[in-house]
Design a protein around this nucleic acid. Structure first.
Lengths: 206, 206
DNA sequence: GGTATATCGATTTTTATATATCGATATACA
DNA sequence: TGTATATCGATATATAAAAATCGATATACC
């Protein structure tokens, strides 16, 4: 992780700004002010300005930001234009769902293979993506320059898979198993626990 | 949202503690100290203590916490024992994947129905769960006392679905569409954007 | 039973984040 | 062309979270 001097919270808001801007009716807003973005997203206008100025240039008084420029600045800052390749380990329920998920493209990510340790599972193809035996992960990553991986295996295998990924040169991991993974400081790990997150918000209901 | 005086960041760590404790080898650790939890999860020991004391009772010097008691305290605090009913709106790729996902049970949530507006989709059953026409959502929620909903529809329909949910009495919503939803203050909304999250961590790779 | 020590809990300090206020600037409009 | 105003950027304040420090307690061990 680098690029400090931009807060983590801000980093998480940038995609929100971007998708908001992209969802604006085409051509209707050639320019947009930080104030109106803030209003639409229920945020403070100062915060929006600060966030945008951190990632992009600054807007112009009276008119605000040029919408198209702002969109491409954000996309470029978030690196949505790069087409990085991604692999998924674990082709069970969750893994297959992710193989079928079509949201990765829009953020410049391209899932090109999946891996599993079950002979009943690998060798097949899901939604046009080949499922390979886990033993091939290292050579595959080396050949294809893979840096990004998704862990979608049961809890007990997650650390093992993590180790294999790191050994294969992967340095950014999204982990769907509800366990804490250990890896070197140069590896960026993000844990996703959909069920736990849903349970948290559900606490609010009586 | 209530239960202030416990930080949001802490609330997000509690499930991590819980799954860590549950993954401990059975019977091997009748007691566990905040220090050792902290070490295992790469957190500060003070923070662990503070988090645990906020949610559960406090441990005892020299021995720490009774593992089983701690687990059930956390489960009860996080309300994992309640069996709340959940509905999903949108039975496309993501919706179906969520219908197939088996992680909700462990946190006390039970997906009992899905809704869609496409006649080609509703009327069928996916993984044992009926997909119903969206028009039935209000009566269904009323009959079954549904308070929790998941939005898995395309961007443009998300706000409309959100409104319908709120109108149907739902007050906790997990939203997978990358748009900002507006709802009353009594409605708790959590946005999940898997692709954007993956893109964020991918920024770290060179 | 006494003592050393690992652990806890409370208080303080530091850091990070969000909010509010102020002045400056460039644009729209008269 | 001049002025009013909406918008920006910077600085300062307030809040929230994390880290560090300190003293107290109960347990294990002698």
């Amino acid at each position: 992780m680098q690029t400090r001097n931009i807060s983590n919270a801000c980093l998480n808001r940038l995609p929100v700004y971007l998708s908001f801007l992209k969802n604006l009716p085409k051509g209707e807003y050639p320019c947009i002010s930080a104030t109106s973005i803030a209003k639409a997203l229920d945020l403070g206008e100062v915060q929006v300005r600060k966030d945008l100025s951190a990632a992009c240039g600054s807007g112009r008084p009276k008119t605000g930001y040029d919408t198209d420029v702002l969109i491409s600045s954000l996309e470029s800052y978030l690196k949505y234009n790069r087409k990085d390749k991604v692999i998924i380990v674990g082709a069970g329920k969750l893994g297959k769902a992710l193989l079928d998920y079509d949201g990765f493209e829009a953020v410049g990510l391209n899932v090109i293979a999946a891996f599993d340790n079950d002979p009943a599972v690998y060798g097949r193809t899901e939604h046009g993506i080949a499922i390979k035996p886990i033993t091939q992960i290292k050579s595959f990553c080396a050949e294809n320059g893979i840096k990004i991986g998704i862990i979608a295996v049961p809890d007990v295998f997650a650390q093992e898979v993590c180790d294999r990924m790191v050994e294969s040169g992967i340095s950014a991991i999204m982990n769907f198993a509800p366990v804490h993974l250990r890896a070197g400081d140069n590896v960026c790990i993000k844990n996703e626990n959909i069920a736990a997150n849903l349970a948290l918000i559900s606490k609010s209901v009586n």
